[in-house]
Amino acid sequence: MIKTAILLATEHMSILREEDVVPFRYRVKECAAGIKMGLVNQTYLITAASELARNMLKYADGGIVLIETIERDGETGIRLMFKDQGPGIEDVGLALKDGFSTGGSLGVGLPGAKRLVNEFEIASEPGKGTSVTIIRWANG
């Protein structure tokens, strides 16, 4: 379970078309640069964000992302919460395995995104939707 943190800023963006992914990535990059996150960590975060946004489009026809700047134990970071109302994931454990895909892709997205962030949480209920929360700390 992801621990609570102090919320410094919050906004949300809708990801409903593939064209929405680019401005979304751009906004995440701006937020990450705003807390002086290093370039490699920024790239990790944006890549993970891109994978998850793409998943939402592909499997759930899109959804909403909360972009938050947070602070916990003196560390600042970016927290992204992806929420969709798609079909959900039947076996989350399996979906997190490298090389597993129901969508005919490489099966890199979800496990890869998990590796690229400091904290990762996924909750899914078949028929109701999926929510994924990731955190990348500025100096994590």
Binding site: R25, K29, T43, I46, T47, S50, E51, R54, S105, L106, V108, G109, G112
Partner: peptide, 9 residues
């Protein structure tokens, strides 16, 4: 700035 799995593919 970013190559994700789709772009890589």
């Amino acid at each position: 700035d970013i190559v994700d799995s789709f772009m890589g593919r």
